[in-house]
Design a protein around this nucleic acid. Sequence first.
DNA 1: CTAACGATTCGCT
DNA 2: GCGAATCGTTAGT
Length: 210
Amino acid sequence: MLQPSISVEYLLKEDFYLRPDVVTIARDLLGKVLFTNIDGQFTSGIITETEAYCGQNDKACHANNGKVTSRNKAMYLHGGHAYVYLCYGIHHLFNVVTNREGVADAVLVRSVAPLDGVEIMTARRGIPPTKPSFTAGPGTFTRALGISLQHNGMLLSGGDIGILDKGFKVSDEAIIAATRIGVDYAGEDAKRLWRFYLKDSVWVSKKLKQ
DNA sequence: CTAACGATTCGCT
DNA sequence: GCGAATCGTTAGT
């Protein structure tokens, strides 16, 4: 079985992740391609929804106020690593770590549009790939891509998991900025417009009324 | 050691 | 709209 070749040219480079503004990186990740290659099974999706989490001064962030625990320590790695954790005992949530080592900024990927390996993803999900919930939502697309705790702390370097720039262009007009989901406990920080999604995509977990 | 929680999803009403 | 599922992590005793 042939699998799509992973061109190193397409892999996002370290300087993409090391930029200091995690909110900008969250926007820039829209349209990029997240893939996994697990036991020879290659699957990928176009990123359609993200949220920025700012290590310091963000009550919604696991690393708020410099907190370090065994769960969140991957957030302190330098940009370009993965931070994966278990939510509600069921769902594996995937983040892209950004900024320099020691600064716990990260972007939660919330949705992707299916791209490669739809048959494999269908087997993992157990629902038809036509339903938005196939890969819309932070716990569902990770299941489709086979992302789990084993990816926590991994470098997004292209072996088992990585992010590609395949040239999908995203204009500013195509992006909606909104409040983050499920962080009501964060007080004022819950009001920040740090969620971004593609306005015209069906692969988004929750949209604002137009 | 123990209790309570959670950056959610799914099925049922 | 509501509530169960489900378990690693966290904070407190």
